[in-house]
Simulated assay, not measured.
Amino acid sequence: MSFTKLSVSALALAAVSATAAAARDEIRIVGSSTVFPYTQAVSEQFANNTGSPSPIVESTGTGGGMQIFCGGIGETHPDITGASRGMKPSEFELCAQNGVTDITQANIGSDGLSIAISSSNEFDWDLSLAEIYLALAAEVPVDGAWVANPYSMWSEIDSRLPAVDITVLGPPPTSGTRDAFVELAMHAGCEELDYVANGDFDGDWVEENCSRMRTDGPFIEAGENDNLIVQRLNSDKNAMGIFGYSFLFENLDTLKAVKIDAVEPDPETIASGDYPVSRPLFFYVKNAHRGVIPGLNEFIEEYMSEDAMAPGGYLTERGMVALGDERRKTVQENVLNAVSMEAPE
Score class of each variant (00 low, 15 high):
Pro218Ile: 01
Met240Lys: 10
Asn251Trp: 02
His289Glu: 08
Met186Phe: 02
Ser84Arg: 09
Glu298Asn: 05
Gly65Phe: 02
Val321Phe: 00
Arg279Thr: 09
Asp102Tyr: 09
Val16Arg: 14
Asn234Cys: 11
Leu323Asn: 13
Leu248Asn: 03
Asn238Thr: 02
Gly74Pro: 02
Thr81Tyr: 08
Gly65Tyr: 01
Phe243Trp: 08
Asp200Trp: 06
Leu233Asp: 02
Ser114Met: 07
Val292Cys: 14
Arg232Thr: 08
Val230Asn: 00
Phe181Leu: 01
Ala188Asp: 11
Glu93Val: 15
Thr62Tyr: 05
Ala47Ile: 14
Gln332His: 10
Ala96Leu: 11
Ile115Trp: 09
Ser90Asn: 11
Leu228Met: 08
Glu333Met: 09
Gly86Ser: 07
Leu281Asp: 01
Ile157Trp: 10
Ile220Thr: 04
Pro89Phe: 00
Glu250Trp: 14
Val277Asp: 10
Val164Pro: 05
Phe3Tyr: 12
Pro280Gln: 02
Met304Cys: 11
Leu6Glu: 10
Glu345Pro: 14
Ser2Gly: 09
Gly51Val: 04
Gln40His: 15
Glu75Arg: 10
Asp200Arg: 11
Asn98Met: 04
Arg214Thr: 02
Ala137His: 03
Leu228Gln: 11
Gly312His: 04
Ala262Ile: 00
Gly74Asn: 05
Asp158Gln: 12
Asp266Gly: 06
Ile166Glu: 15
Thr4Arg: 15
Phe123Gly: 11
Ser32Ala: 14
Gly71Ser: 06
Ala10Gly: 09
Asp79Leu: 03
Gly74Ile: 00
Asp325Cys: 06
Thr50Pro: 01
Gly241Gln: 07
Leu13Val: 10
Ala135Thr: 15
Gly217Met: 03
Pro265Lys: 10
Thr174Lys: 12
Cys70Gly: 05
Thr254Phe: 01
Phe283Thr: 10
Ala343Tyr: 04
Asp102Ile: 01
Leu127Phe: 09
Leu296Ala: 03
Glu122Asn: 06
Ala116Ile: 15
Pro311Asn: 07
Pro171Ser: 13
Ser340Thr: 13
Leu323Val: 02
Arg178Asp: 12
Phe219Ser: 03
Gly176Tyr: 01
Pro265Glu: 11
Gly295Tyr: 05
Glu191Gln: 10
Ala180Asn: 14
Asp236Gln: 04
Ser152Gln: 14
Ala12Asn: 13
Tyr245Thr: 11
Ala322Ser: 10
Ile56Met: 06
Glu192Arg: 07
Phe3Lys: 13
Leu228Tyr: 15
Phe243Val: 01
Ala96Ser: 12
Arg279Ala: 12
Phe249Leu: 03
Gln97His: 07
Thr177Trp: 05
Ile73Trp: 06
Gln67Trp: 09
Ile29Arg: 00
Val182Ala: 00
Ser17Arg: 12
Tyr245Pro: 02
Asn238Met: 15
Glu58Ala: 14
Glu75Ala: 14
Ile115Arg: 09
Asn334Tyr: 07
